[in-house]
């Protein structure tokens, strides 16, 4: 069997980029689940709203690919931060309006509220930008679109393409992931969040404002989804009201795969899903005739089923026995 190594590496690069994008969304699922044991089904739509808002902000700045580089970078940064704030606000707002009131209700109640908000946000999105896909206002100068970093910067003679856009995805996601780890494990608020996730009553007895801490988890999860929205908007050069469904489902799968509630698990699960996704989309057809992107969801959920069968708590599910 002939393996097309160049294509394999190419798809791995795309897979890692997609994976880190999914990781930003998966972290929102896993943080919220960790702290209130709710699968926030509106999370995919919070991500989608971030993408839409980013497109609006870039449009408002009036920046074009011909603008000065610093202005382009400034506009992109502004759009990224605005999308993060916007999505954070939506996620926090949903918790404040609906989930918080249902904290002591049966589990199914907030779950259904989440599905309801998912539909509400999709309909707002249709009203806002219409039902057809929108393209983001162009930002990247023409010369960078077909630019290959491996050729131009490293002088490698290869057909594998590493675009500035791929690098940008890593340049945005990696610092965010490190910042999040630092926040959760090193800061006072982060420790309060972990304590609340492990035992809400005990956390309250320590003097931790549980509602505020839960609100913070929604804020942070929303902000990460907003960043993912901005990245997805430019990485796929499109956004649509339905985009939250597919990304949200893959991210949720990644979170479960890694062990829901576990931050590292969400990242590893996402990278895994990203790679499976890109290999199934672009590489498998060189091995199996007739294979293509239409099989991708089946493969991803197949991987999930296999992991669930052999390790129900997920790859990094940490179930410390709690002694009574």
């Amino acid at each position: 069997m002939d393996v097309n190594w160049n294509l394999l590496i190419q798809q791995l690069i795309i897979g890692l980029a997609n994976g880190s994008l999914i990781a930003l969304i998966a972290l929102g699922y896993t943080m919220v689940y960790g702290i209130v044991e709710l699968i926030n089904f509106a999370h995919g739509e919070v991500f989608m709203m971030g993408a839409f808002f980013a497109a609006t902000v870039v449009g408002l700045t009036g920046v074009t690919p011909q603008s000065a580089p610093l202005i382009i970078i400034g506009a992109a940064a502004l759009a990224l931060v605005s999308a993060m704030l916007f999505s954070a606000g939506i996620n926090f707002g949903i918790d404040r309006i609906a989930y918080r009131r249902l904290r002591r209700a049966p589990r199914l109640a907030p779950l259904i509220a989440a599905i309801g908000f998912s539909f509400i946000l999709m309909n707002i999105a249709i009203y806002w930008k219409g039902g057809n896909p929108i393209s983001p206002p162009a930002l990247l100068p023409q010369k960078y679109r077909a630019y290959n970093v491996l050729n131009e910067w490293f002088g490698l003679d290869t057909t594998i393409r590493l675009r500035p856009l791929d690098l940008l995805v890593f340049a945005i996601t990696i610092p965010i992931l490190f910042a999040l780890t630092w926040f959760v494990y090193r800061t006072r608020s982060g420790k309060a969040m972990r304590a609340t996730a492990q035992d809400r009553d005990a956390a309250a007895l320590m003097g931790i404002d549980v509602n505020r801490t839960i609100g913070m988890a929604f804020l942070i999860g929303g902000a990460l989804a907003g960043a993912a929205g901005m990245i997805a908007l430019y990485y796929t050069s499109a956004a649509r009201f339905q985009m939250g469904f597919r990304y949200g489902l893959f991210a949720f799968t990644a979170a479960v795969l890694g062990g829901i509630g576990n931050l590292y698990g969400a990242v590893v699960g996402s990278l895994l899903i990203g790679i499976v996704w890109s290999l199934s989309d672009g590489f498998m057809k060189t091995l199996i005739g007739g294979w293509g992107a239409q099989w991708t969801p089946s493969v991803i959920f197949g991987v999930l089923v296999l992991v669930m069968v052999f390790k129900p708590s997920g790859l990094f599910g940490d179930h410390v026995p709690e002694k009574v």
């Binding site: 972990r194 304590a195 492990q198 035992d199 009553d201 005990a202 007895l205 940490d318 410390v320 009574v324």
Partner: peptide, 13 residues
């Protein structure tokens, strides 16, 4: 301060 029923220590800390 309270040491609650069933200890309620933070198990993963």
């Amino acid at each position: 301060a309270q040491s609650p029923e069933g200890r309620r220590v933070f198990p993963r800390m």
